[in-house]
């Protein structure tokens, strides 16, 4: 192998790792915010991730709207979906002490319903789904090409993550949300409307998952199996990073993104999934609170 070939592989691993990493981080941040506040381990995150990509695809294919309109519309669609889920299923358990296990099985049920619906609808219509590029063309980083579209995805996901961080740190809602993470009784005593924060964090988490799904659909062609892989990956990131820790989700998300890119270049992506599962098991056994918990 020549030096330039090695360099080419290295660059491709780095760029793929960056794109996958920010998307993983975004989804895992969404999952971890919801677990940190409501105690809801969203096992159906992968299905919602896929839902977002499929809705965006439907807008583009059926209504023939430009991709950026479709993306914004899809994000808007997530709000009524989250509201409906919150009002019908999730709200009922806010006061149950061991609610995380009930939520876990509940979201597994949601997963089963969504995957059943997708397999007889979208699964019959197409094997592979593609979204048109947001920005056409190719940029050369030195001699190495990277599509403008993926650069856009990388930028957009980074901006969204930065916005999420800024909101959690500086906005009153974000501060209230972090207060609930740390101690819900004390937060309630200080006048935080805990239930409103629960609702907000669920919508915010869904929005992150949807954004991740749309961006993934823009960067790569996808099929229905991506839901399950994403669900396992996001859970692994959440557990390893520490449930409730957005910083942990981002750091571990980036690490997993590079792992995926590196492993997929040389062998089967199944091995990457194996490594996430192994990492999750080890953390569950040794430090169930995760690496970045306070």
């Amino acid at each position: 192998m020549t030096t330039s070939a090695i360099l080419l592989i290295a660059i491709s691993v780095i760029t793929t790792g960056l794109v996958l990493g920010v998307i993983f981080s975004l989804v895992a941040a969404g999952v971890t915010i919801v677990y940190g506040s409501i105690w809801l381990p969203n096992a159906s995150n992968g299905q919602f991730f896929l839902t977002a990509a499929l809705i965006c695809w439907s807008f583009v294919t059926w209504l023939a709207v430009p991709i950026w309109v479709a993306a914004l519309l899809t994000l808007a669609v997530s709000l009524p979906i989250s509201y409906l889920l919150e009002a019908t299923l999730i709200r009922r358990f806010y006061d149950v002490p061991d609610r995380n296990i009930a939520y876990f099985v509940l979201t597994l049920g949601v997963t089963q319903i969504l995957s059943g619906i997708f397999s007889v609808t979208y699964g019959r219509w197409s094997d592979q789904f593609n979204l048109p590029p947001m920005i056409a063309g190719v940029t050369f980083i030195g001699p190495f090409p990277m599509t403008n579209n993926r650069i856009f995805v990388l930028g957009a996901a980074s901006v969204l993550l930065a916005l999420l961080f800024a909101m959690l740190r500086f906005h009153p809602y974000g501060r209230a949300l972090r207060a609930v993470f740390q101690n819900r009784e004390a937060a309630a005593l200080r006048g935080v409307n805990v239930r409103a924060i629960y609702r907000l964090s669920f919508a915010l988490g869904m929005l992150s998952i949807f954004a991740g799904g749309i961006l993934y659909g823009m960067a790569y062609s996808f099929d229905l199996t991506v839901a399950w892989t994403m669900a396992v990956t996001a859970f692994a990131i959440m557990i390893v990073g520490g449930p409730g820790s957005v910083l942990g989700a981002v750091v571990v998300g980036m690490v997993f993104g590079f792992t995926q890119a590196g492993v997929s270049t040389f062998t089967s992506p199944t091995l990457a999934t194996f490594s996430y599962l192994a990492a999750m098991l080890i953390i569950l056994l040794l430090k169930p609170s995760g690496l970045f918990s306070r």
Binding site: L89, R92, L108, G109, I113, G116, I117
Partner: peptide, 17 residues
């Protein structure tokens, strides 16, 4: 028979809720 997944999923939710 693919409806089975949907029915079982709905029942899981119904049982829990």
């Amino acid at each position: 028979d693919t409806l089975k997944d949907v029915i079982y999923g709905a029942l899981i939710i119904a049982v829990i809720v």
